[in-house]
């Protein structure tokens, strides 16, 4: 059991990294990774919402939608839950945790339309994970997101001094750099499986 949890956790960070391998959440990856502190803030907010969203959507699907033959409503229900949750978190944080709100608050409205959140909640159910496994998976996915954001913000700092051909200036060269970072992550392929003997 513990081995399986650890396997899910580490494979979400390294081999199944959401940004670099599964291509979820590319928009914030390209948009917010310019500075290290905003990269950390954004990914902390994403991790937090991912876990909370999984906490909420898994029971709703398993105990409410599926037994009643409503699983086709999954997309609508999940996106509404996520939208409401984000709004709720923002309000609660603003009232009770002002320092946390100052750190993460500006990233929260961006998160509703972030495909990693909806992605992780749906993929957890597609993979048939139980409640605990889903939560661990969400946590791993969030930390994997953070890892790639932090790594890439370092790469982008160097990129600012580079002088690419004119047409490549700005985003195109950033994408080519992302390609190389993603290449380094393919090197982890098989690593987690070998360690945990899965």
């Amino acid at each position: 059991m513990a081995a399986k949890l650890a396997f899910i956790f580490f494979s979400m960070i390294l081999t199944n990294n959401y940004v670099l391998v599964k291509f979820l959440g590319i928009c914030p990856f390209l948009g917010v990774s310019k500075k290290l502190d905003s990269a950390v803030g954004m990914s902390a907010a994403v991790t937090f919402v991912m876990v909370v969203a999984t906490l909420a959507t898994w029971p709703v699907y398993t105990y409410l939608l599926e037994p009643n033959g409503l699983s086709y409503l999954q997309t609508i229900v999940f996106i509404l839950i996520i939208a409401v949750l984000v709004q709720l978190l923002e309000t609660v944080m603003k009232k009770f945790m002002p320092p946390l709100y100052r750190a993460l608050g500006i990233y929260l409205p961006l998160i509703t339309t972030n495909c990693t959140i909806l992605g992780v909640t749906i993929l957890n159910l597609d993979n048939g994970y139980n409640y605990l496994e889903s939560i661990v998976c969400a946590l791993g996915a969030g930390l994997g997101f953070m890892l790639s954001m932090v790594l890439f913000s370092g790469v982008r700092k160097r990129l600012e001094d580079a002088q690419p051909p004119k047409a490549f200036e700005g985003l195109p060269i950033t994408l080519v750099a992302a390609s190389i970072v993603s290449l380094s992550f393919t090197g982890f392929g098989g690593l987690v499986e070998t360690i945990f003997g899965m």
């Binding site: 060269i173 994408l175 080519v176 390609s179 993603s182 290449l183």
Partner: peptide
């Protein structure tokens, strides 16, 4: 593979 996706998109 994933790195190729980023690369082709950039080009």
């Amino acid at each position: 593979s994933p790195p190729g996706g980023f690369f082709v998109f950039g080009v």
